[in-house]
């Protein structure tokens, strides 16, 4: 709207200018205005990331200054005694995202392979659309469904996980706990479902732009479909596939509502994945409106800063890896 207003404002200038036959200069000024207005707005968008960093740094400074490095490595989070450490939440964020990746990466690969190489033409678009719709469903719906439908259902399997995986030496410790349905594992699974569409979409796109001659020559040598996928398509698209996975990871790290519903919100570390935990995003969502003191609020904003920095690094890596994809598309076009 601003743009069209600017255009409308600029139009009479040019029109009158034409009449006064002082054309070029007035035209240049309308052009100048439009070009610089749009440039300024674009810069504003780009700078907003820096703005986020500065704003969170300023607001979180009190806590960061007060606790120093211990803020990052302390596991205690006690609003009453005002002792705050972020480690529990950092670890919780990383574990839940790791579980999500373990689920989402192979599934996304399968989906991308199905859509790009196996599905008959008529099935391609509907399946693609269905997977994309998974991304359109808001995270609050995932959370609500996760808490009220998925968790009670999943708790039926937890005794089995206890008995079988929990009995294994070493990693058994990860799978022991009461069958509550909610907890780190459930949150990771729901997160995994949520990031499938992001990873699958990128894998599908890069699989589809793998040059046909490359695949055909492998088929001509007698390779099976799986061998072509595994030994031709995947190596060719490896960088972009990794980028897609990082993009999914970036989503998982910052996902808030679904995790808040399902993770159980316990402010301590436990070895078992079946026990409740917390992520950075979930603790901010849960406690922000309850944070009455300055230091408490500042600690939560400092957590937000940590989350922002982690996701920023992951997303930059993702985009750098994906730049190759743009170049490949450019070559095709």
């Amino acid at each position: 709207m601003k743009a069209s207003e600017a255009a409308r404002d600029a139009q009479p200038i040019a029109a009158t200018a034409d009449k006064n036959s002082a054309g070029p200069r007035a035209r240049i000024s309308a052009d100048f205005l439009f070009r610089n207005l749009s440039a300024a707005v674009a810069m504003l968008v780009a700078i907003s990331l820096l703005g986020i960093l500065i704003a969170l740094w300023r607001e979180g400074w009190e806590a960061l200054h007060h606790f120093g490095w211990r803020f990052l490595v302390s596991t205690s989070w006690n609003p009453v005694s005002e002792h705050f450490g972020a480690l529990v939440f950092i670890v919780g964020t990383l574990i839940s995202s790791a579980i999500a990746l373990v689920i989402a990466v192979p599934v996304s690969f399968g989906i991308a392979l199905f859509i790009s190489e196996m599905a008959p033409r008529w099935l391609r678009n509907p399946v693609s659309a269905a997977i994309e719709l998974l991304a359109a469903i808001p995270s609050i719906i995932y959370g609500m469904w996760g808490l009220l439908v998925f968790a009670p259902w999943f708790s039926n399997f937890e005794p089995w996980i206890n008995d079988h995986l929990g009995a294994l030496p070493g990693i058994g410790l990860l799978f022991q706990g009461p069958p509550m349905g909610i907890g780190m594992l459930s949150a990771g699974i729901v997160l995994g479902i949520m990031i499938i569409p992001f990873i699958a979409a990128i894998m599908r796109d890069v699989f589809l732009i793998t040059p046909a001659p490359l695949k055909e020559s492998a088929y001509a040598m007698g390779a099976t479909k799986w061998e072509v996928a595994r030994k031709v398509i995947l190596p060719y698209t490896r960088t972009a596939v990794t980028g897609g996975i990082f993009l999914g990871l970036g989503r998982a790290l910052g996902e808030t509502m679904a995790v808040t519903f399902i993770i159980g919100n316990a402010n301590n570390l436990s070895a078992s994945l079946l026990m409740p935990g917390s992520s950075i995003a979930s603790v901010i969502a849960n406690e922000f409106t309850e944070a009455t003191t300055h230091l408490y609020k500042s600690a939560l904003l400092a957590l937000g800063l940590i989350l922002f920095v982690i996701t920023f690094i992951v997303l930059v890596l993702a985009k750098l890896l994906l730049l190759r994809l743009d170049r490949m598309e450019g070559r095709k076009a």
Binding site: A42, G254, G304, L315, A318
Partner: peptide, 28 residues
């Protein structure tokens, strides 16, 4: 290219961080 890059990062930035930003610049 750089603005496009940063915009893509903003596109995937966690929405909770955006909320905290709005809190920091307006609500606070």
């Amino acid at each position: 290219a750089m603005v496009r890059f940063l915009n893509d990062i903003l596109l995937s930035a966690p929405s909770i961080v955006i909320g905290l930003f709005a809190y920091a610049i307006i609500v606070d």
